[in-house]
Simulated assay, not measured.
Amino acid sequence: MKHPDNILEVAALLPDYMGFIFWEKSARYFDGVIPELPKSIKKVGIFVNETAAIIFEKVSKHDLQAVQLHGHESVAFCEELRKILPKDIEIIKVFSVQDEFDFSILEPFEAVCDYFLFDTKGKLPGGNGTTFDWKVLENYPSTKPFFLSGGIGLEELEAVKEIIKTELAVYAIDVNSKFETAPGLKNLKLVTELRENLQF
């Protein structure tokens, strides 16, 4: 999210999370003030290879409830964050997937992250508007809940619903570019339709 009026419009639909990108190279870079949101909505700061000090500063400044790590953050870095951030801040570690994925790399992150997020590998760290082969997730070996991301639009909803029905630990879906009229500006009609058609 990026624009105050649009943030409030989407917030009225009561999503569980709202994301704010603190990576300056992103067209969705957020450098404003987050308006007051309903208490049920968790504000997520999205970071790419940022320092722990900057993440701590943004969490404090914007009263974030979660951080999403979209770069090459190590297990040690996640451990450091866990130590300096308030204990109730959720840490979401993102992993990029294409046609295959080595799930063994997840194991050391299990103890230092609350959730994983699987996104499509692309030119940018997120927001590429393309899906990956979700069948790869059939080999997911963990019980750690995860966010499903990567080019999800209304046309993918039936496939999303099928994944949710499986025994996989799908916790949430992360939507972005296919619900926008411009980077960081969400199409309220499309988001409303998503909300009406996909209830967890």
Rank of each mutant, 00 (worst) to 15 (best):
G122A: 12
V44T: 11
K87G: 10
T51P: 13
A169T: 13
R82A: 02
G150D: 06
S40M: 13
A27M: 02
I163H: 01
L157C: 07
L148I: 12
E162Q: 13
F118N: 00
F47V: 03
P145C: 06
I164E: 12
K178E: 11
N187Q: 09
L148H: 05
T181M: 11
T181I: 15
H62Q: 04
G19I: 02
K58R: 13
L85G: 14
Y29Q: 07
I91W: 00
D102C: 13
A66Q: 08
I21K: 10
K83C: 07
F47C: 09
H70A: 08
F132A: 07
E158N: 14
I91T: 06
V44M: 04
S60K: 15
A53C: 10
E107Q: 15
K165S: 12
L188K: 14
S177C: 02
T131M: 07
T192M: 05
G32Y: 01
S104P: 10
G184H: 06
A11V: 00
G32M: 05
V191A: 10
H72A: 13
R195L: 06
Q68C: 03
F200P: 11
I21D: 14
K25C: 06
G127D: 09
I173T: 08
F47M: 03
V94H: 04
E50C: 05
P15K: 03
K83L: 03
P86I: 09
R82S: 02
E57N: 15
K39F: 06
A182Q: 11
N187C: 11
G127T: 07
L190S: 15
C78K: 08
L8G: 07
I152M: 04
D31M: 09
L185M: 08
N197E: 15
L190W: 11
N49K: 13
F200S: 02
E90D: 14
L81P: 04
L154F: 00
A169W: 00
L37G: 00
L190Y: 06
L198C: 10
D174Y: 06
P141F: 04
L194R: 10
F20S: 05
F47Q: 02
E36C: 03
D174H: 06
V75Y: 05
P183S: 06
D63Q: 09
A12E: 03
D133L: 09
I164W: 08
K144C: 06
V170R: 01
I91N: 10
K43L: 05
W23M: 08
T131I: 13
P183M: 03
E162K: 14
P183V: 04
H62C: 08
F103N: 12
P35D: 04
S74L: 02
L13C: 02
K58N: 05
R195H: 14
F95W: 04
P15G: 04
D174V: 09
S96D: 13
E9L: 09
K61W: 08
K123Q: 15
L124D: 11
D88Q: 15
K83H: 01
I89Q: 03
S60H: 15
F30E: 07
S60Y: 14
A66H: 01
I41K: 06
I54E: 15
I41S: 01
K39I: 10
T131E: 09
S104R: 15
F20N: 11
N6F: 08
Q68A: 02
T166L: 02
L8M: 12
T130E: 14
M1D: 03
M1F: 08
E80Y: 05
L198D: 12
M18C: 03
W134A: 08
E57D: 15
E57M: 12
K121R: 15
E36Q: 08
L148W: 01
T131F: 08
Y171L: 02
S104T: 15
S142Q: 13
